[in-house]
Amino acid sequence: MSLDKETVAKVATLARIRMNDEELERMAPQLSKIIGFVEQLGEVDTDQVEPLANVVDITLALRDDEVNDGACVDKVLANAPESTQGFFVVPKVVE
């Protein structure tokens, strides 16, 4: 399957990566090639096969529903590009 420039542009929007025309042109054949490569999986008969999501033979552990971490606002905000009064600052979202 070949991905055209419009499809690549749509995927770039979904992935929130800005790409100009030149990048879309360059990316389209590269992605097409990789998608073409993985499409060989279609040859494998998987009709009776359950998808494997996790290889580990352990069941997820439960713990008591109580607070065991927190009170570290300064640490959480330490790497924020912008913060004020204990909050992350982002461009205006709501008019």
Binding site: A15, N79, A80, P81, F88, P91
Partner: peptide, 21 residues
């Protein structure tokens, strides 16, 4: 938003997409 590189943009979607680009 929380860490790492941020492109300084007025619009949130621009900020996301250009920061990542």
């Amino acid at each position: 938003v929380r860490y790492g590189h941020r492109a300084d943009k007025e619009d949130l979607k621009d900020m996301y997409e250009i920061s990542r680009a």
